[in-house]
C-alpha cells in the first residue's frame, strides 16, 4: 500500500515537472526561419537587419505589438516576414505612424494574402521613412505561443 502511494506521488511529481517543462520550453528557431527567407533578398537586396518577435497569446482580446523600423529617405527596402512559427492567425500591417497617432495611414497588410498555408510575406515600399510594423492577434485567439521573423533588406 505504502509502495503504491509512493509510486502514485512520484508519477504525479514527474507529470507536474513535465507539464512545467512543456509550458516553458518554447524556443523560437529564429536562425532557421531567417535562413528560409534570406534567399528572397536576392538578387537586388542585401541583408540589413532583422527582428524576432515572440508572441504569447493568453486571452480573448485582440492585441497589437508594434515594431518601429527606421528607414532612410530615398533608399529602397524590402520587408520579408516568416510566420511559420505562429500558431494563430496574426495579421501583419505596416503603418506610417505610431499606434495612436492622428492621420495614421496603412501602407501594407497581409490580411487578404493569408490562405492558411502561406507563411512568407514580402513587401517593397514605394517610399521610405520610419515605418511601424503591427502584429495584430485575432479576438478569439485562445492560448498559443510562437514567433514571427521580420527581415529587412536594402538595395545598394
Amino acid at each position: 500500500m505504502k509502495k503504491s502511494i509512493l509510486s502514485l506521488l512520484l508519477t504525479l511529481v514527474l507529470l507536474i515537472g513535465s507539464a512545467e517543462a512543456l509550458q516553458t520550453s518554447y524556443v523560437c528557431p529564429s536562425t532557421d526561419l531567417k535562413n528560409e527567407i534570406k534567399p528572397l533578398l536576392s538578387p537586388d537586396y542585401k541583408y540589413d537587419s532583422s527582428k524576432i518577435t515572440r508572441i504569447k497569446i493568453q486571452g480573448q482580446e485582440g492585441k497589437t505589438i508594434e515594431v518601429e523600423v527606421p528607414l532612410f529617405i530615398g533608399e529602397k527596402y524590402k520587408f520579408i516576414f516568416n510566420t511559420a512559427e505562429l500558431q494563430k492567425d496574426v495579421v501583419i500591417s505596416v503603418y506610417n505612424k505610431k499606434l495612436g497617432k492622428n492621420n495614421r495611414e496603412l501602407l501594407y497588410t497581409n490580411k487578404d494574402q493569408r490562405d492558411g498555408k502561406k507563411t512568407t510575406f514580402e513587401w517593397e515600399p514605394d517610399k521610405s521613412r520610419t515605418m511601424y510594423i503591427n502584429y495584430e492577434t485575432p479576438k478569439d485567439a485562445g492560448i498559443s505561443e510562437g514567433c514571427v521573423v521580420f527581415l529587412l533588406g536594402y538595395r545598394i
Binding site: C28, T53, R54, E61, I65, L99, G100
Partner: peptide, 13 residues
C-alpha cells in the same frame, strides 16, 4: 533578446 511580450492591448504607443 527574443522579444517576449505577453500581449496586451496597446492603447498608447
Amino acid at each position: 533578446d527574443l522579444t517576449e511580450i505577453e500581449v496586451t492591448q496597446m492603447d498608447s504607443p
